[in-house]
Design a protein around this nucleic acid. Sequence first.
DNA 1: GCGAAAGTTGACGGGGCGTCACGAATGGGG
DNA 2: CCCCATTCGTGACGCCCCGTCAACTTTCGC
Lengths: 213, 213
Amino acid sequence: MGNSVTNQSASEGKRALSKAANRQAILEAARGVFARLGVDSTTVRDIIRETDLAAGTFYNYFKSKDDVFEALANESTTRFRPRLAEVRAKATDFESYIRAAYRAYFEFLRDENIAAIESGAPHMALIGVRIDTPEMQSVVEEIRADLESHFSPGDTQGVDTEYVTAAAVGIAREMGDYMLKRRPVDVDGATEFASGLFLTGMESFGMRVRTTP
Amino acid sequence: MGNSVTNQSASEGKRALSKAANRQAILEAARGVFARLGVDSTTVRDIIRETDLAAGTFYNYFKSKDDVFEALANESTTRFRPRLAEVRAKATDFESYIRAAYRAYFEFLRDENIAAIESGAPHMALIGVRIDTPEMQSVVEEIRADLESHFSPGDTQGVDTEYVTAAAVGIAREMGDYMLKRRPVDVDGATEFASGLFLTGMESFGMRVRTTP
DNA sequence: GCGAAAGTTGACGGGGCGTCACGAATGGGG
DNA sequence: CCCCATTCGTGACGCCCCGTCAACTTTCGC
């Protein structure tokens, strides 16, 4: 008992600890309220009410309701990033990268929305995706770099890598939305279709891709 | 002077006339304010202030700021519909439909945003597109029907027309956004790329498409 | 332990929202 | 031509949410 230093089991001071806890509490409360009421009609007070904090405290952590929403979106994007990194690491060629990337995205979408899917929620499928946050734009930039790295100099004749990226991302986004509306959620089918379409399509620009049928 | 009936030059009563004028005034004011302040931070009062109407009058025409935004979006969608109909009427086969449809969409996007493009506006490129209004969903459904009408029974083996539609639309949306960010706005390049990718891609599902190189 | 710094609290002024009672404009009927 | 029912415009009002801030509590360094 006589030790003047703080309890060893706590690696951080009480200060930082409660700060993290409060931030997390707000985020979790917001996630629930957004799902229940929809983002537009929730108020800062709705969020803080599901917490044991006071109204003013909210503004020590976030600037506004939309700031919280963006944080949730970034959190979600952050969860996707390692999956994409794994895909990049394991890919041996263009085809395997594309297939794995589409699968990773569609699986991610399903996983993120599994709660909403299982309980037929009306609002907010798709939190954290679709929104054009800077974080998401940076993921798109990663994908562009990945795609470019698979273009051999002979292939890339006049192909605009940003158009390629936009098309690949567009297919994923729109098909992803659609996939989530169907029961059962068909990750395999979506992956197969998106990959087949995109890989074959790229051949029209002189890219040599062997598509496994 | 002596005629008891109303003035013949006015085909409508003053009532209906001013109603239409007021509605239009609100829409035009809203378009300007949305462009200047961004949709999120404009208020109903901001809109009505640019009008010679009173605050309460706004609610005789629209339920909320978002209702106005949706109306503007629908208006825009309505302008696109005849272009798509023309494409449908003139198309002789799958390829010509796809090429013309992508071109129509990219030209439409450029035309709708020409003001914003020429004056480097910060907010709101893209009013009326991207937003998932019921009106827009109905256009997507039109496109789905168009695509399906070009699938011959031999082709359509196991091809999910809704996946096809989603992919085609996704390519258009994402590439369209990207096209608008570039100067000069490159409708030809975007059309060429989107059409080539999609048409060739469809061949991987057994569809017989002759792509002109 | 003690003083300073950091964090929390809830009440408050400000402002946008949507409504409503009132008055003006319209147009059909006599 | 006039009158009255109906429709529409008006702006003040009450409501609620926002973001702030001075007072209070907790934590930290010494």
